[in-house]
């Protein structure tokens, strides 16, 4: 990521010095650039290492969420140990477990009550897609109602998988910065087409073939 940053910097410098405006304009854009970098590497650095989760645990995924918070997997190593049970103090909504249709307004209210910037992790099969509960009473994926940032598969996911999701979220915060949830919202999509070309990313901890 650092290498890409340097590349962008070089490109921008080349563009700006060759521009006809010259000196003061260059200095101003430079200042903009510095503020941008400060935001990205300073504020977002602090932000991504102090994500406070709001555990919305409705089922067995909540147990794995507790295991992730406990001493063995110790979510505090990622700065996300401050589980707050009021949405007004939280950055990340972790939806763990199935969400019934009647529960969805509650979840939406909790999401609305969280201050921006906020992110959503959809943990487990039920929260992400409905899982085995393919009925009218269960929401077939909370992403039909909330802008979900990271999907964590599993039934329930292992603590490692949740930590992997948290790391992916930290990566999003580092690279993407803060965009409002309205911008990130993907809305209701009922038909999904799998991408046919991309290779699958096998996770940070995976050690490969031998």
């Amino acid at each position: 990521m650092a290498a890409r940053g340097v590349q962008v910097e070089l490109k921008r410098t080349a563009e700006l010095t060759s521009a006809p405006g010259g000196g003061s304009e260059f200095a101003l854009s430079r200042l903009d650039y510095l503020i941008d970098q400060l935001k990205r590497h300073g504020i977002n650095w602090a932000r991504r290492h102090s994500l406070w989760p709001m555990p919305f645990a409705t089922a067995c995924c909540g147990i794995e969420l507790m295991a992730t918070g406990a001493s063995r997997y110790d979510i505090a190593r990622f700065g996300a140990e401050a589980m707050r049970f009021t949405p007004r103090q939280c950055d990340v909504l972790i939806v763990a477990g199935r969400v019934a249709m009647k529960m969805m307004p509650v979840l939406q209210k909790i999401y609305i009550q969280m201050p921006e910037p906020k992110w959503v992790i959809s943990m487990g099969a039920c929260a992400s897609t409905g899982g085995v509960f393919d009925t009218y009473a269960v929401v077939q994926g909370v992403d039909q109602f909330l802008p979900v940032d990271v999907y964590v598969p599993g039934c329930p996911p292992r603590p490692e998988t949740l930590l992997e999701g948290l790391m992916r979220l930290q990566q999003i915060v580092a690279e993407d910065g803060v965009r409002s949830s309205r911008e990130r919202g993907r809305g209701l999509r009922l038909t999904l087409q799998p991408p046919r070309t991309d290779r699958v990313e096998l996770g940070a901890g995976f050690r490969g073939a031998e």
């Binding site: 964590v152 490692e160 998988t161 992997e164 992916r168 993907r186």
Partner: peptide, 8 residues
């Protein structure tokens, strides 16, 4: 077990 994604 370490597969996560940003899209479905």
């Amino acid at each position: 077990y370490e597969l996560v994604s940003c899209t479905r």
